[in-house]
Amino acid sequence: MVIKVISVIAYLVLAPIVGCILAGLDRKVSAKMQRRVGPPILQPYYDVRKLFEKEKMAPTRYQDFYIIAYLVFLIGAGAIFFAGGDLLLVIFTETIGAAFLVIAAYSSNSPYAEVGAERELLQMMAYEPMMLLTAVGFYMFHGSFTVDDLVKPDTMAFLPMIGLFIGFIYILTIKFRKSPFDLSMSHHAHQELVRGVTTEFVGRTMGWIEVSHWYENIFLLGFIFLFFCNGTVWGCVIGALVCIAAYFLEVFIDNSFARMKWQFAFKSAWIVAIVLGMVNIFILQLVF
């Protein structure tokens, strides 16, 4: 019990810090790949600090409520995950959080935010199947949906679930909002929807969204970590290394692709989910 409380508190406190550094590294490595110098590694922190100092100018005052709800649900999902709760509950909580983000975007009545919100909904529909299939795959392999049980198995789930792993990395591109699937909200705002979903958020609200990204990133990397848990220390070490490698692979993918349209994102995510995910689950069913 104490461990759970400690891990939740550790998540709540450390996740933004680690997430911030990871985001900074993302920008620095991207810059190096483009032969630029790039911002200092703590730049995301400076950005959020600046955002919190800005004047609040919201088109509607309900926005804040929705964004706080989004943040709460997202942090809640992460907390449940690190407290060892049910994986499906985690996924659904996270989905509600994302739904609140979409509603917040709709509430601002701006055309850019509306189109961004539509795209965000399509994105959600694109990645949900794969997430759920991953959870199902864990259940098939380890026999439980609870994260507590999933971190203490005997064998590493990586190789038997390799199809699901690759599929998960694929949709991670969508979740991390990286090219080719940064449809609804690009970090660089160089897209047709200005800032997409987050167009109408300013100041503190925008700051909260940035912070929520950090939480989300850490929680998603936690998912990858689950693939490598086998109860031993070196399993954890490999897990951590693969998490970081996966993150930088996403950065590399971000820099190597143009942005695709939502039709392609949707279709390809479902095809990957079906081909890799379902086949893998089938194999898991037959073999294990």
């Binding site: 790949m33 483009q34 940064d182 660089h188 160089h190 820099n255 190597s256 143009a258």
Partner: peptide, 16 residues
């Protein structure tokens, strides 16, 4: 053009 379809690395390399 590269920037227009979200390909920032190509954009920066062309400008370099």
């Amino acid at each position: 053009m590269a920037d227009g379809f979200g390909f920032e690395s190509l954009f920066n390399h062309c400008w370099r």
